[in-house]
Amino acid sequence: MSCLQTIQDYGLRSLGFGERLLPKTDFTLCEHFTLIGSGMIWNIYFGVMAMIIGFFLATALAVGKASANKWLRKPSEWFIFLFRGSPLFIQFFFAYFFFLSLKKPYPMFDAFTSAWLGALIVLFLNTSAYAGEIFYGALRSIPKGDIEAADAYGMTGWSRFRRIIWPTMLRLAWPAYTNEAIFVFQSTTLVFFSAFPAWQQRGDALYYASYFADKTFNPFVPYPILAFYFILLTLVIVWGFGRINKRLNRHLPEERKTKMRFRLNLAR
């Protein structure tokens, strides 16, 4: 069977299209690459969706945590502490249990026990907490002069936030937020590994990698392929976020731009 044929058969296998049965014997490298790559669709889906929705909650959490109002501050602090303080592994476990028990009395929650929704919710809450903390740190380091200048122009409330505080916060937080993005994509491998069941052998990249490792009893081929895909994905993320970073910093003089990048580029 040619490699092109394999790609046609298994390229979208993780979504349920193509050949129903997975290969069973005589595994080729092409099959490895195709199926693990097909699984990457899920990793990318989880990562992208969680980052996009999480961005808004993260902003809200950061503003809440920086707020002077106790009723806004305390819940934000607790939320961030709970999700940053416990392993994602355990969060997945509890979420699955919780969704199961919700489902029994209310059938409308049916979809929550499937990975595409349930795991997405957990990842979304998790990344919101981390990004919230990053944004909160950035909010606190906004130069006082910027805010005073906004005040002097007579900006208040929403317009001051939207036009001054928010863009500055993003600019300061961006390098750390890039790191967070890398982490989120990496944590998507946990979804089928420990938490949510895989239906009809539709799983993520790690699911297929361990399928091969289990069938060939050789971990040294599938896992490095998985690693290769993730390094590729990381490069794309770094490139994409770097583009946005450039745009966020476009008004700054050249020499301050590079400095900013390294000073804040600290791990999650």
């Binding site: 129903r20 049965l21 997975l22 590994f193 420990s194 069941p197 895989a198 239906w199 009809q200 052998q201």
Partner: peptide, 11 residues
């Protein structure tokens, strides 16, 4: 997986 039933796998 081969029997035609819908397979759901747990760890």
């Amino acid at each position: 997986a081969e029997s035609g039933a819908t397979l759901v796998e747990f760890a």
